[in-house]
Simulated assay, not measured.
Amino acid sequence: MKLYADRVPTAVRQLITDLLVVLWVYLSIRVALWIHDVVLKLAVPGQKLESAGSGIADNLAEAGSKVGRVPVVGDDLTKPFTGAADAARSLADAGHQQQEWVDQLALILPLMALAVPLALVLFLWLPLRLRWIRRASVALAVRDEPAGRDLLALRALASRPLSELAKLGPDIAQSWRAGDAAAVDALAELELKRLGLRRSRV
């Protein structure tokens, strides 16, 4: 498997691109973690509200139970404490719900922040990189074989711009069809150069 080109300019470009992609993914993950931490801080008011509401509800319930022991009027005196305790529990529930919403946002927002960078890497950079690796590996496997060089020459004839082919001579296609070794080598070299590979193993 060929990961990088033989020719220095192409190899340097590939290496820099790979490093930039790794840096891009790393920074995207760091940003997503930062968003997660920032969003989680929004849960602090909910935590305080839940804690305060629960504490007030417990205190009111305890006070109501003590007041309820008063003979004759104990039940009547307990009702306001019970109502206030229920209201405090409602506040505690609201604080708990707010924390649940924040927890969901702390999961969704970082995923959304990661989605675009990772999609660019997975659907743009990675397919191009894998395609080059596959083509370069095949080219390496066939470049030193006569039939393989003929295939590389055919690939160059089919894919390279006419301006590049014309530089090899006006009758380059005819020479290739005739099996001219120099023409085949020139076309194969053109295709290898496009892939950033050398003519033969060093």
Rank of each mutant, 00 (worst) to 15 (best):
K79T: 13
T10K: 11
K79V: 14
E164I: 03
N59R: 10
D75K: 14
V39G: 04
Q99A: 12
Y4M: 08
L20H: 09
D180C: 03
L187G: 01
H96E: 13
G95V: 08
R177N: 12
R13A: 13
V39L: 15
L40A: 09
E62P: 00
A166R: 14
P9I: 05
A61W: 10
Q104H: 05
A188T: 02
G83Q: 13
K48R: 03
L114H: 04
Q104P: 00
V22Y: 04
Q47K: 04
L3N: 02
Y4S: 08
R134E: 11
D75S: 04
R199E: 14
T78Q: 15
W132A: 10
V39A: 11
R155F: 07
P71V: 11
P170Q: 07
P80C: 12
R69K: 13
R194W: 12
A156P: 09
A94F: 11
V38F: 12
L114I: 00
W176L: 07
L187C: 08
G64T: 04
V116D: 01
A181G: 07
P45Y: 09
D86V: 10
G95A: 05
E50F: 03
R199C: 04
R69A: 11
W176V: 01
A106Y: 03
I35C: 07
A61V: 00
V142S: 02
I35A: 13
A136N: 01
G148I: 04
A113T: 09
D185C: 02
A186F: 01
L20K: 07
R194V: 02
R135I: 12
S159F: 12
L165E: 06
S54Q: 14
A88T: 00
T78W: 03
G148V: 11
V121P: 09
D93T: 10
A153E: 06
V72E: 07
V25K: 03
V67G: 02
V38G: 09
A183F: 01
Y26Q: 05
L157D: 07
D103F: 07
E100F: 05
R89P: 08
R177L: 14
L60C: 04
I133P: 02
L124T: 14
D180Q: 03
D76I: 10
S51V: 00
R149Q: 13
G46Y: 10
P80D: 08
G148D: 08
A141S: 13
D180M: 03
S175K: 15
A173N: 09
A136M: 02
L187D: 01
D75T: 05
A136S: 06
A183T: 01
D58N: 15
V25Y: 05
M1V: 09
R89I: 00
P117I: 03
V116F: 13
V121T: 14
A182D: 15
A11T: 01
D86S: 10
E100P: 00
V116A: 15
V21G: 03
A61F: 06
A84K: 07
L114M: 15
A32H: 08
G64I: 10
T82A: 12
P170E: 08
L130S: 06
D6K: 06
A115D: 04
G74A: 06
Q47I: 00
